[in-house]
Simulated assay, not measured.
Amino acid sequence: MVVTNQPVIARGEVTVVELDEIHNKMETLLGLAGCYVDALYYCPHHPHKGYEGEVPELKIDCRKPKPGMLLKAAAYFNIDLESSWMVGDGENDIKAGKNAGCKTAYIKREETEVEADMTVERLLEFV
């Protein structure tokens, strides 16, 4: 399952159709490697204003680190969040996982210290 912030929609940089094309390409490439995505949840919102072409109705703050997407997925798929892992490469991913009650794994992409249950250099190390 994938949960992702996509503020590019609220900023008017990408349309929902274009984002769907990107996600379809990602799922195709993953499928060719034998990996499958059960569901993909994205938040198109962005709370900050002042972008040329922004979409005013999407200027709200509900994205990660708030756990909404994880809670929605857990309800739909009957997921036990306390037994689940949130794996991400950003501090907001880890905070969202903690806010949802998950264990967390941080894929280190910079020298920033993140309070995760596990830190790895590459996803394969976690797997």
Rank of each mutant, 00 (worst) to 15 (best):
T4M: 03
N5P: 05
Q6G: 12
Q6E: 14
V8N: 08
A10P: 03
R11P: 11
R11N: 15
G12V: 10
V14A: 08
V14D: 00
T15Q: 13
E18C: 11
E18H: 13
L19W: 10
H23N: 04
K25N: 15
E27N: 09
T28G: 00
T28E: 06
L29V: 14
L29I: 10
Y36A: 03
D38P: 10
Y41A: 12
Y42D: 01
Y42W: 14
C43H: 08
C43R: 01
P44A: 04
H46E: 04
K49D: 14
K49L: 13
E52D: 12
G53Q: 06
E54A: 05
V55A: 09
P56V: 10
E57F: 13
E57P: 08
L58I: 07
K59D: 05
I60C: 14
D61C: 14
C62K: 12
K64Q: 07
K64C: 02
P65T: 11
K66G: 08
G68Q: 12
M69E: 03
K72C: 07
K72T: 11
A73S: 12
A74Y: 09
I79A: 04
I79P: 00
D80M: 05
L81S: 00
E82A: 12
S84I: 07
W85Q: 05
W85G: 03
W85M: 13
V87Y: 02
V87G: 01
D89K: 00
D89I: 00
D89Y: 00
K95L: 15
A96H: 12
G97T: 01
N99A: 15
A100W: 06
G101E: 07
C102V: 06
C102T: 13
C102D: 09
K103F: 07
K103A: 14
K103W: 07
K103D: 06
T104V: 06
T104H: 12
I107Q: 05
K108A: 04
R109Y: 04
R109K: 08
E111A: 12
E111K: 07
E111W: 05
E111I: 08
V114E: 01
E115A: 03
A116G: 00
D117R: 02
D117A: 01
M118P: 01
T119M: 03
V120I: 03
V120E: 00
R122T: 15
R122V: 06
R122A: 14
L123H: 06
L124R: 10
V127E: 05
V127H: 11
V127F: 14
